[in-house]
């Protein structure tokens, strides 16, 4: 399954969910769906904006863990 580590990066950059959502152009609710791993899909454009604001790589946000049942499928 794919694990989202957005909360880790947000803590490292010391930015709140609301502020990041505002900068990225998403609603806090949508960003929360992504942060909690409930999103079904992520657009490249959204991922790009998040990485730009957090100054990180996609691999910093997304991690693949084998042999775990995904919860959002």
């Amino acid at each position: 399954m794919i694990v989202v580590n957005l909360d880790v990066m947000m803590a490292k950059r010391k930015i709140s969910l609301t502020e990041l959502a505002d900068r990225v152009g998403l609603t806090p609710a949508n960003l929360s769906i992504f942060k909690t791993g409930k999103a079904r899909a992520v657009r490249f454009s959204t991922l790009e904006r998040i990485c730009r604001e957090l100054d990180c790589q996609p691999s910093d946000l997304l991690e693949y863990r084998p042999d775990e049942v995904p919860q959002n499928v």
Binding site: L26, N30, L31, I33, F34, K38, A39, R40, A41, V42, R43, T46, N72
Partner: peptide, 8 residues
């Protein structure tokens, strides 16, 4: 619809 709503 759910897939669409949960696509960010």
């Amino acid at each position: 619809q759910e897939d669409h709503e949960l696509t960010i």
